[in-house]
Amino acid sequence: METKDQITEQPSRYDNLEQMSVSELIHHINDEDLLVAEAVKRALPQIEPFVEAVEERMKRGGRLFYVGAGTSGRLGVLDASELPPTFGVPDSWVIGVIAGGDDALRHAVENAEDIIERGWQDLQKYHPTADDTVLGIAASGTTPYVIGAIRLARQNGLLTGCITSNLNTPLAEAADYPIETIVGPEFVTGSSRMKSGTAQKMVLNMISTSLMIRMGRVRGNRMVMMQLTNTKLVDRGTRMLQELLGLSYEEARECLLEAGSVEKSLLKNEE
Rank of each mutant, 00 (worst) to 15 (best):
185 P>Q: 11
239 R>P: 00
235 D>T: 15
132 D>F: 08
207 I>Y: 02
199 A>W: 09
82 E>T: 10
130 A>N: 14
196 S>I: 08
255 C>G: 05
209 T>Y: 01
250 E>I: 11
182 I>Q: 08
56 E>S: 12
122 D>R: 11
166 N>W: 07
112 A>V: 10
145 Y>F: 15
172 A>K: 00
62 G>W: 04
198 T>E: 13
18 E>R: 14
192 S>Y: 02
126 Y>A: 08
30 N>H: 14
131 D>Y: 11
119 G>F: 06
135 L>Y: 09
33 D>R: 02
117 E>N: 12
110 E>Y: 04
192 S>N: 08
243 E>F: 00
49 P>H: 01
227 Q>H: 09
160 T>C: 05
229 T>P: 09
35 L>Y: 02
254 E>V: 12
116 I>R: 07
96 G>K: 05
151 R>C: 05
111 N>D: 15
96 G>Q: 04
47 I>M: 03
255 C>H: 12
110 E>G: 07
114 D>N: 05
266 L>G: 03
37 A>Y: 08
265 S>D: 00
124 Q>F: 09
197 G>N: 10
105 L>I: 13
92 S>L: 08
40 V>T: 05
39 A>H: 08
39 A>Y: 09
174 A>M: 07
168 N>H: 12
188 V>N: 07
179 I>G: 11
244 L>Q: 10
7 I>C: 11
203 V>Q: 06
249 Y>V: 14
165 S>I: 07
29 I>K: 08
215 M>G: 02
145 Y>L: 11
84 P>W: 00
238 T>D: 00
246 G>A: 07
125 K>A: 12
18 E>I: 15
161 G>L: 03
